[in-house]
Amino acid sequence: MKARAFSYARPSTIEEALDAFASAGDDASYIAGGQSLVPALALRLQAPSLLIDLAHIPSLRGVELKDGWLRIGALTRHCEALADPLIARHAPLFSAAAPFVAHPAIRNKGTLGGSLALADPASEFPAMALAMGAELEIVGPRGARRVPADDYFVDLFQTAIEPGELLVAIHVPAVAERHRWAFDELARRRGDYALVGGGILAEMTGDRVDHIRIVFFSVGSTPVRARQAEAALTGRSLIPAAVADAQATIDADLAPPDDEQVPAAMRLHLARVLLGRLLGRIAEPA
């Protein structure tokens, strides 16, 4: 199939992009890297009358550390998340996840903002934004707002972004010396969607967990925080008994879909295995 005929706009500012969307009567789509939108257009899963190209808006680019937060422009590409020293230092789960995202050709074009706006529940970057407690900067006709990642993911491919609004940046609390983190995923082949993936950001005093965020992906309609596992570990050292207690909560924390390819019971088992692996890495001396 081919995409339906559409008009094309190339704004140079966020305001021009919002105006273009409004002029189309909401029958428009924003495009950045296009790694998800272009296939959807070809299959006519999306058929906007206007395509708004964001690639030429300078304010959507750049990485900046300010007041304890790392601001990452929405047009930051996956390959930049892998290579940027500020992201590696202050938002390390993005850097840790980047090599697992699809393949180099896709990482060279795909953007962090596009991944978070699409919110594929099997995608690495949305889950790691949740694990790091990020806030998403959204701009629309009524102005700008920042939405915590805990409130951003609504349902399958649904986020807090309203029609006409635009995700412009990701704000990540900069990690400190007391933080430890780990990322991994289990997939049939490198570059495939994960059967189960996860990331952890923990604040430690010595070997004691003061605060921890554990997030899984490919286990539901959105990235999922394992809150009972977090509670089982808070205030404790990561000894085998504590890890086992956290693993025992997985059935209560996660409710993965059941399908012919990967039964729910298999995803739960893999999640327990993955949690043990990640906590083992967190427990290692810094």
Score class of each variant (00 low, 15 high):
275 L>T: 04
195 L>E: 03
82 L>S: 10
171 H>W: 12
178 R>G: 05
39 P>C: 10
25 G>L: 11
41 L>A: 00
152 Y>V: 04
170 I>F: 00
110 G>S: 07
190 R>P: 06
103 H>V: 02
220 G>H: 06
223 P>I: 01
73 G>W: 00
201 L>C: 09
66 K>Q: 13
128 M>D: 03
13 T>M: 09
149 A>Y: 01
183 F>M: 05
150 D>K: 15
30 Y>Q: 05
251 D>T: 15
36 S>W: 00
37 L>C: 00
247 Q>P: 01
148 P>I: 02
204 M>N: 08
50 L>A: 11
17 A>E: 08
119 A>V: 04
193 Y>A: 10
172 V>K: 02
17 A>F: 12
102 A>N: 07
165 E>D: 08
283 A>H: 14
108 N>H: 08
105 A>V: 06
16 E>P: 04
142 R>F: 08
2 K>I: 01
235 G>Y: 08
186 L>A: 02
16 E>V: 07
237 S>A: 14
101 V>C: 06
55 A>V: 12
85 P>Q: 12
258 D>R: 09
135 E>Y: 10
267 R>W: 07
99 P>I: 03
239 I>A: 15
222 T>A: 07
192 D>V: 01
146 R>V: 05
62 G>Q: 09
286 A>E: 12
86 L>C: 06
97 A>M: 01
53 D>F: 01
84 D>T: 02
233 L>C: 00
29 S>H: 10
114 G>F: 04
